[in-house]
Amino acid sequence: MKLKLIPFLIAILITTVFASCKKTVELPAQPQNKITEYKVVNLTDTVIYGAIDQIDKSITVYVPFYLNLTVIDPAISVSQGAGIVGKVEPIPISAQDVKYTVKAADGSTNVYTLKIVQQNTPSLTVDWSANATLEVSPLLQLPPIIGDFQSRNGSLVQVQMTNQKSNKVVTFPTGSAFSLSPSDNLYVLNGVILPADIDTGSYKVKVTYLGHTSEITRPIHVFFQQPNLLIPSREVKQGGTISFTSFNTVFVGFKAASVTVNGKTYDLPIQSYTYTDMTLKIPDDFPVGVYYYTAQYSFQFDGWDAVKKIGALTVTAK
């Protein structure tokens, strides 16, 4: 009896084995709306891969400070047949709200959030460079600032100057054309040019870089200096206007201008002026002529020496 049962059991087993071999398990179709690769390509001979989290739909990109990146330019791979909605553009590394929508061929979408993590220096200490003269005038550069910036990326530096009397703040935002150059084990910041309209007085200077802020202990003094201007050649009709621009200084207390030609002096009424520009009227009765570097200009500024210049002036009839 046992011996008859055994072939029966074997037959059942073999049937089971074959049946299992034919078994197919249908899985639900995978949605084809994923970002499959994210890499930053605006680097020489290398890339930075973003870490893609398909659960919380995020991409994390770590940006080391020493790569001096201000923007990241991504190359993105998506599921077959899918595409990114909208253009993929370079992104400032400070951006926090970037999202990518992937649209599959079947119309389904996925939205990924980009997280940029800046891997920055541990601290920042800054000071004026040795032997710096702590006096400066509008439109001129601050003295060099030395610090442990550890990179050449001057465009990530922000500088703030606070007037110690009025507390008025002048901000030079990131993205300014500052330069950072190595000096021994430190870096020197240059190119911080004062605006024309900065008030005179004593200022505290604060530098922000890669998430750290450091204030320079010694203040700097901002003062006006003798106004000066360049006199390019000008051609104008009688009764018309001519303009001049300041040269490394600002116009303060501007009160009168005149020009002497053929031994006669003509007042040039001020039409308008700013710290950097002046517009003057040529009198209606100004003699027509070409005064090729024989026009003797004189500019009066309250409290300053008169500025005398010789220039080329051509005056034509109305």
Binding site: L13, S20, C21, K23, T36, V41
Partner: peptide, 26 residues
């Protein structure tokens, strides 16, 4: 029994296919 288990496990199509992709050039 062992052979059956092997065959059955081998034949099951429960491994999802690799996700094909499309590149978006930089």
């Amino acid at each position: 029994t062992i052979a059956g288990m092997l065959f059955s496990s081998c034949s099951k199509s429960n491994n999802p296919a690799p996700d094909p992709k499309t590149d978006t050039p930089a």
